[in-house]
Amino acid sequence: MKRIKINEQHCIGCRLCEIHCLVQHSKSKKIIKAFREERESIVPGIHVEESGYVSFALQCRHCEDAPCIEACMTGAMYRDPETEAVICDQDRCVGCWMCVMVCPVAAIRRGPEDQVASKCDLCMEAEIPVCVVNCPNEALVYEDDAVR
């Protein structure tokens, strides 16, 4: 499957990935409106980890053997048959946070509203995930597993 590859040596910690992730997952998809109206209600599915000058943008790895799917008691966490991405069905999520507990890379976060889990969905509506498109230094690359 196609995944987002992280080149941490090129990550400059600007956090434009987080910003554009938030916009992409807003209702309006307009950056100024999204920040004005939905900033508090959306948690981006990508998060920049930083220590000194080392930084990288972490998001769900869409593991082949995904513990979050195993751990989900409502079946909200499932694998999309088409893209093979691990997706959280927000309608079924009850906010038990088992997925947050078992995620080996800490890529799932608590959503502020409705208490549902927030995670990367590989921007199902966009051809290329917006974090990749908007990374100014190509620290995020969207490519096939085979390439690795």
Partner: peptide, 13 residues
């Protein structure tokens, strides 16, 4: 001020 979303990119750059 109409456009700034206080995202902080400028601060970090």
């Amino acid at each position: 001020p109409e456009k700034c979303i206080q995202c902080g990119v400028c601060v970090r750059q």
